[in-house]
């Protein structure tokens, strides 16, 4: 298996603050990879750095064998797409679903837009009845489905997921996670998924990296995490914290 995405000694600096301190990461093709850690550990920043939304100060990012420069070209965005955390903030308030899905096609000059929009909506389980609605006419789960459809419409090979379900309630969370699993299997996508919920990560991902203060603490497989075969104290604390949550639930 080749690496779909590999990151070497990535540094991100906001003003004086080092948000990422030399992080290494390798995600294989078709793999689902998790990033866990507390708030401020730099996991979302890592995703932003890949997409070019965070200021990269050093290191290298390689996507499908191509090392990225300072700016991202259009071809990059056809390979890598992202789903945001908050479905209430990631859809333009004055655009219909139709318009939202048309925009990426228009930017990349893709023909047969009508068919592709219909197909994209079908794929995420929204019929044509949702096509001409505005974001405020949709529920949280429906919005996130639209956001996924928008990310998939350019047919990327890598999907970055920034806590895609943390803003949704439990039953809708499961629906959206199942949908993501399904599209990944069908399209053989590579996932890089950020979450602070260890249960979601163990369910969705084969491997994961634990992060703290902008550094990688350790890299584990899902089975290692389930079996509590971890070597770092920090990870053990995280596990204990998540079990505490399970007991009260």
């Amino acid at each position: 298996m080749t690496a779909a995405l590999s990151i070497e000694r990535l540094e991100v600096v906001f003003d004086r603050f080092r948000a990422l301190k030399g992080v290494d990461l390798e995600v294989r093709e078709g793999e689902s990879y998790g990033l866990v850690g507390e708030s401020g550990s730099g996991k979302s920043t890592l995703l932003k750095a890949i997409t070019g939304l965070a200021p990269v100060a050093g290191g290298a990012i390689t996507v499908n064998g191509k090392t990225l420069g300072k700016t991202r070209d259009k071809a990059f965005y056809r390979d890598v797409q992202m789903v945001f955390q908050d479905p209430y903030g990631s859809l333009h308030p004055r655009q219909t679903v139709d318009r939202l899905l048309q925009e990426p096609l228009a930017i990349h000059g893709i023909a047969h837009g009508e068919k592709r929009i219909e197909r994209a909506l079908d794929e995420v389980g929204l019929g044509n009845g949702f096509r001409f609605r505005y974001a405020h006419q949709l529920s949280g789960g429906q919005r996130q489905r639209v956001a996924i459809a928008r990310a998939l419409i350019l047919e990327p090979s890598i999907l970055l997921l920034d806590e895609p379900t943390s803003a949704l309630d439990a039953s809708v969370q499961a629906e959206v996670l199942n949908l993501l699993e399904e599209v990944r299997r069908r399209r053989k996508l590579t996932f890089l998924m950020v979450s602070h919920d260890l249960a979601i990560i163990t369910h969705m991902c084969e491997r994961l990296m634990v992060m703290q203060n902008g550094e990688a603490v350790e890299t584990l497989t899902a089975s290692q995490l389930i079996g509590h075969r971890v070597s770092e104290d920090y990870t053990r604390n995280l596990l204990r914290a998540s079990e505490g949550f399970v007991r009260t639930a």
């Binding site: 997409t51 939304l53 991202r72 070209d73 259009k74 990059f76 965005y77 056809r78 797409q81 992202m82 945001f84 955390q85 908050d86 903030g89 990631s90 859809l91 333009h92 308030p93 004055r94 925009e103 990426p104 930017i107 990349h108 956001a147 928008r150 350019l154």
Partner: peptide, 25 residues
């Protein structure tokens, strides 16, 4: 906002973002 970032991630030019996504607001 995330919805403007989302359009940036589509590869839209700044010109397009200002004209089609910010001006209408």
């Amino acid at each position: 906002s995330d919805y403007i970032k989302a359009v940036q991630l589509m590869g839209a030019s700044p010109f397009r973002i200002v004209l089609r996504h910010i001006m209408p607001l």
